[in-house]
Design a protein around this nucleic acid. Structure first.
Lengths: 341, 341
DNA sequence: TTGTAAGCGTTATCAC
DNA sequence: GTGATAACGCTTACAA
């Protein structure tokens, strides 16, 4: 029924508990013969160490956490998947929390996790995250930043090459003959600046003047309403003037898919009137009408690497002396019908 | 830095550890005065009990798990969200695993969780789940079934009224003037039978003869290829014959969205040529072109209730004597452009 | 009403 | 190479 314990194994073997413990931990102090006997017996009785006891002893719970803004966001949920896999492979438990782009919920989550004896946390900070609090928390508990990594926090960071991703996407739209290019991005989410920079660089490289009004910043809270209003006005004008061929770059899953929905409601044809490409990590892109060209981020890998780094920190003797590095992964571009010439 | 312990508190207060422990647990043995002194001191030093020690003592880890087939499935991820919230409110940690519709991975996950001293598990069994193994596991560790609940396992079950959901959807298509109605469903996923039954009932109620060829069963493994082939052939014939107005009912998120993508590639217009409605728990439905009519399942609530029931079982004195009940929740229907007359 | 002490299952220190 | 023993922080009989 309940698991056999070290003590019971020791009794059966007629040796001491500490010897059994050492044998199972492959200590150099124990003879090969004893080790073998112990291991055989352990197998026979299907011994499983009591993690709870081990935890109490070592002070570590073998549990780490992921905090993301929204599980419903496919990109973020893929980060979680990667983290889950890495945690699993290393026999760590993984719990997750959502911050809902809310600094207070984020802080609450961190507090809860800390009380629950979590060994470390991987976080994509919320849009209005409180850096001071993160720093303070990092003193108590290892923290790794993923995706939104533009924070002045001495730790491991895993992100993507946002500038290059946005550059490639913009260049693609230009290659498709679009010279008037809108860009949608979330307010305050850290990655936006780099993406806008990439967008501008691409324009510059093609001798196209960047217009500030083409950069639409959307607040997460009322993203849909904001977006509908802004997009509708802007496009109405542009399409009336019959100026330059229009392109649209969405810098997040949600914004891009929403924008497609809005265009469809406005009966603006894609790609004929507006060519669209977006950062999007969902298979649904293929099934959209028209299918959506995307910049794909290696979300799974971000989560996976995040856990590797975190565990490295958790298990290190002195986590304040680690040589922290930042990992930047590349995006890939997939062309579909939404941006065909 | 590190948390203050009971022992240290006791020292400071000049009383014994057990008195402090009892005071903090509001034991009737302790005087109000002492309780107050202890609580004040505990607050002052920001005392947090060491969960690990408590766990070792009680034998429970205060951690529960959710196993779902795919996190990428919006319906399933919403179940997870609900579970997460309920767990959080009760100060339980929640870990999750994916079975990828694979009985072996599922069993592996259960084993891993059991070794990790999980207190209980909420599971949506995979398509080919091994009932025997589930039963066996349930002897060791509390199990609650969610969504796919048609299993002969004596435990709490939370699901939706699949028959009624499918009935409503089919009736809606009929109301929209469709009399030749296709239905897409996953093979072996338990809920399909009920949904097909609802579909047939609706046809019957409207004096429409059910045709077996209209029921398309798709294997998860090669769902996309299967679907493309089946749908393409079937629709090609139907559209050639210009018979009855066609409707399409998708019984899962994935199938429905994929079907929409396929229709769009085949340049079949929705809803003019084929009206579509599907079980789908994603906001993206609104942004699709055309926007997708959906049957929405109360996924969050399923997860939430699942955790409530599970914790009830975990904390009960004798979990083998509980009066297990099954909760059936209703679906709601949202009409959008994909099924407009 | 409060205190003493055992024990949960490990690991680690030190003696033999 | 092996074994006693303490310790991790808490709960809980039982003693006072």
């Amino acid at each position: 029924m309940s698991n056999i314990t070290l003590k019971e194994l020791a009794m059966k073997l007629g040796i001491s508990v500490s010897t059994v413990s050492k044998a199972l931990n492959d200590s150099f102090e124990i003879s090969d013969e004893t080790k073998q006997r112990v291991r055989d017996m352990a197998d026979e009785y299907n011994y499983r160490p009591n993690i709870l006891a081990k935890s109490l002893k070592t002070g570590r719970s073998n549990t780490i956490a992921v905090i993301i803004p929204y599980l419903a966001n496919p990109f973020q949920s893929q980060i979680l998947e990667g983290a889950q896999q890495a945690a699993n492979e290393r026999n760590y438990k993984l719990v997750f929390m959502q911050s809902r782009e809310n600094a207070e919920l984020e802080a609450d989550s961190l507090r809860t996790l800390h009380q629950q004896n979590i060994d470390g946390v991987i976080i994509t900070p919320s849009a209005d995250s409180n850096l001071k609090y993160l720093k303070q928390f990092h003193q108590l508990c290892p923290l790794v930043l993923v995706d939104r990594i533009d924070f002045d926090l001495p730790t491991f960071k895993i992100g993507v090459n946002n500038e290059k991703g946005a550059f490639d996407a913009t260049q693609h739209l230009i290659d498709m003959g679009r010279t008037d290019i809108l860009v949608l991005c979330g307010k305050n989410i850290g990655v936006s600046q780099k993406r806008i920079a990439g967008y501008k660089k691409a324009l510059l490289a093609n001798y196209i003047t960047a217009k500030e009004e083409n950069i639409i910043q959307v607040d997460y809270g009322q993203s849909r309403e904001d977006l509908i209003k802004n997009l509708t006005n802007l496009l109405a004008n542009k399409l009336k003037e019959h100026d330059n061929p229009i392109g649209l770059l969405g810098t997040t899953d949600t914004l891009t898919v929403n924008a497609l929905g809005i265009l469809s409601k406005l009966e603006i044809s894609v790609p004929a009137q507006v060519a669209v490409i977006g950062f999007a990590n969902t298979e649904i892109a293929e099934s959209l009408n028209p299918s959506l060209s995307t910049i794909i981020q290696p979300a799974f890998e971000i989560g996976y690497k995040g856990v590797e780094k975190l565990i490295q920190m958790v298990e290190s003797k002195n986590r304040f002396q680690i040589d922290f590095d930042t990992t930047i992964l590349d995006t890939t571009i997939i062309q579909r019908r939404s941006s065909k010439a």
